[in-house]
């Protein structure tokens, strides 16, 4: 496969998102604008200007009308995807590290940093998926993380739970209506922060990536760790592929150590693991720095990775990827056909 390189950012990438149809990619980086790209040919649709600090996060609503971005200038902004106009600004006390729309795009959550005496919080807003509508200033809910700040969070199936990953390697489950903490489990090492949470297509389970060099597949209902993927490098991002039972993990040496290591040792590769067998099945190299974010096309046709090197690399899977199956899988399929 021949990757498309997107050079719209001058600084390290922070997050990449595909829209639901998989035709547009949104990217944010530590420079102060977000970019939208066509996934099929890498053409840049446009850029979103207005933030005054590094952008940490982006998410797109399921109808591809609005995107939300969170930044180090303590704001969350909503943008019209088509025109690049800023629709709404919410101000916070601290930087916003993660935003995510729920399944139907009626709610948005934002994870704020713990800093300057403010505790880390998860804030929920009601969203009107209409470009003309006035968005509310009011927060529908605020969850305060007293023990350990949340680094990432997301909505479970049917917007029933809010799942958050914390700095101390724990994963907690909140009731999405009341904000009450229902469960909390030490999924990763206590000193390793959780760097990413991404959902399965039906949002019943999710994958977490952590600095403790593992990624885990966790059930949203009871926070049971179903699978563990062990690597040899700190992970920054993990993603579940639709269509095929794989997961893609991205990571690499921490940015501060990069100058002392070569590309080979830095392990700047996207790693593919089999979702069920937990075995590594291949790697895709190409970045010159650690992978900060990995995103999979919801249609399962490709994936994009963003690195500390400021590049987004968009890959379209080729035939070998779709044809690959384990011997066991082939046997099962043959049996099913016979019946």
């Amino acid at each position: 496969m021949r990757p498309i390189l997107l050079q719209g950012h001058e600084r390290a990438l922070t997050q990449i998102r595909y829209n639901r149809d998989g035709d547009i990619i949104f990217s944010t980086a530590k420079d102060q604008h977000a970019c939208a790209w066509y996934a099929h040919n890498g053409e840049r649709l446009g850029t979103y200007h207005g933030h005054q600090g590094a952008l940490w996060t982006v998410d797109v609503d399921p109808t591809s009308t609005i995107i939300a971005t969170g930044a180090a200038d303590n704001t969350v902004r909503l943008w019209d995807i088509k025109s690049g106009k800023c629709l709404k600004v919410w101000e916070f006390n601290t930087a916003v590290k993660r935003v995510e729309f729920n399944e139907d795009g009626s709610k948005l959550l934002a994870v704020t940093e713990k800093r300057m005496g403010f505790l880390g919080t998860i804030v929920v807003f009601d969203i009107k998926l209409d470009l003309e509508a006035e968005q509310t200033d009011e927060r529908a809910m605020t969850i305060t993380c007293e023990d350990s700040k949340a680094t990432v969070a997301g909505w479970s199936f049917l917007s029933k739970y809010i799942i958050a990953g914390h700095e101390d390697g724990t994963v907690s489950q909140y009731d999405a209506k009341t904000g009450e903490q229902l469960d909390n489990t030490q999924a990763h090492e206590p000193d390793a922060l959780i760097t990413d949470i991404q959902w399965s297509p039906d949002r019943t389970y999710f994958i977490t990536a952590s600095k403790d060099k593992t990624a885990k597949l966790i059930n949203a209902r009871d926070l049971e760790v179903m699978k563990t993927y062990v690597t040899d490098t700190p992970l920054n991002s993990a993603s579940i592929t639709p269509k095929k039972d794989f997961v893609i993990l991205g990571g690499g040496q921490a940015a501060m150590d990069v100058t002392t290591t070569s590309a080979r040792q830095g392990k700047f590769e996207a790693r593919f693991y089999h979702k069920i067998f937990e075995e590594e099945i291949g790697r895709v190299r190409g970045h010159f720095g650690p992978l900060n974010t990995v995103a999979v096309d919801p249609q399962g046709k490709g994936y994009a990775s963003g690195g500390e090197d400021g590049y987004v690399r968009v890959h379209q899977f080729d035939k070998g990827y779709f044809d690959f199956t384990y011997e066991v899988e082939r046997q099962v399929r043959a049996q099913q056909q016979q019946q």
């Binding site: 496969m1 021949r2 990757p3 498309i4 390189l5 997107l6 050079q7 719209g8 790209w37 040919n41 890498g42 053409e43 840049r44 794989f246 593919f272 089999h274 075995e279 099945i281 291949g282 895709v284 190299r285 190409g286 690399r313 890959h315 899977f317 080729d318 070998g320 990827y321 690959f324 384990y326 011997e327």
Partner: peptide, 14 residues
């Protein structure tokens, strides 16, 4: 802003 990278051979293997 957009360029094409070198071809990468990615063949998953058990």
């Amino acid at each position: 802003t957009t360029s094409v990278g070198e071809n990468i051979i990615f063949r998953p293997s058990a």
